[in-house]
């Protein structure tokens, strides 16, 4: 059994430590002075409007982009060096439906590493099968990936991430391509995982935030963090940018700029 799937983790160490992180595409700042930390065992939901910097934050966490300023440490290492301990579940996987590959083959990709040559060991196959069982997909191991439903594919993607034996599970819009009929089952899977590992999840699904998050990070160039549970109205206010405006006003006030302050 893979260690990451064995026992619930004690929430004591810091998995992600991000301080004063800034990133820009060309002249446009996408993230500015972003600071947050994620303790071990926490489930953190990342929400915000489109173009607010959620995906960029995810890319920075995966080491696919490099920050302009600030520091980002995952398990005390740079994201690139910590990659092997990150399980990543992409939003919507574009794949060739004619590509002849089974669910198990895909989950085994989670066992790839730079130095491996030749086939996968029995231990790797056992870990992959265990990961599939964890997401209740063990019976589909030999089925073609293209023949699975959207929800089943997404669970296979989670199993692939689990096969990496991750310390941190990153999910990008996990329910985006799942129809309502199977969403409940999928959320149950995520709730089970939430008790066992640290999760960061980018989502637009506000109900999912309420069900799965310990806290929520609102990203819209800057960030604002909230503990959960929050009422649906508050989440919607954050999501629509209300809190960001409030946060920006506070930040400008702290820097001596009172033009945006309410003088009444």
């Amino acid at each position: 059994m893979p260690p990451a799937l064995k026992e619930p983790l004690p929430a004591c160490e810091t998995i992600v430590e991000c301080s004063n992180l800034s990133f820009r595409y060309g002249k446009t700042w996408v993230l500015e002075d972003v600071s947050f930390s994620v303790p071990k065992g926490e489930s953190l939901c990342v929400i915000g409007p489109n173009g607010g910097g959620k995906s960029t934050l995810l890319k920075l966490l995966l080491g696919l982009e490099e920050a302009e300023r600030g520091s980002l440490k995952i398990l005390g290492k740079s994201p690139e060096k910590a990659r092997s301990k990150i399980g990543y579940v992409p939003q919507a996987m574009r794949f060739d439906p004619l590509f002849p590959i089974t669910a198990l083959d895909i989950v085994l990709m989670g066992r790839l590493d730079r130095l491996r040559i030749g086939g996968f060991s029995k231990n790797c196959k056992a870990i992959a099968l265990e990961a599939l069982a964890e997401v209740e997909m063990a019976d589909t191991a030999k089925r073609a990936f293209a023949d699975l439903s959207g929800g089943q594919r997404q669970r296979v993607m989670i199993a692939r991430a689990l096969a990496c034996e991750p310390e941190l599970l990153l999910l990008d819009e996990p329910t985006a391509n799942i129809d309502l009929s199977i969403e409940e089952q999928f959320i149950e899977t995520l709730q089970k995982l939430r008790k066992k590992m640290t999760i960061m999840m980018v989502t637009h699904d506000l109900d999912l935030v309420s069900l799965l998050g310990d806290s929520v990070l609102c990203v819209n160039r800057r960030i604002h963090r909230h503990s959960l549970p929050l009422s649906g109205d508050t989440i919607r206010e954050i999501y629509s940018g209300g809190r960001r405006i409030e946060h920006d006003q506070r930040a400008r006030h702290n820097h001596g700029d009172h033009s945006a302050c309410d003088h009444d």
Partner: peptide, 24 residues
């Protein structure tokens, strides 16, 4: 092909994930 079969399959199927596993 025998030595790098799984890596070649992974690159053919999902380049991004392959890179995230530290495989170029």
């Amino acid at each position: 092909v025998g030595l790098f079969y799984h890596k070649l399959v992974a690159v053919c199927f999902d380049e991004e994930f392959t890179s995230l596993r530290g495989v170029s």
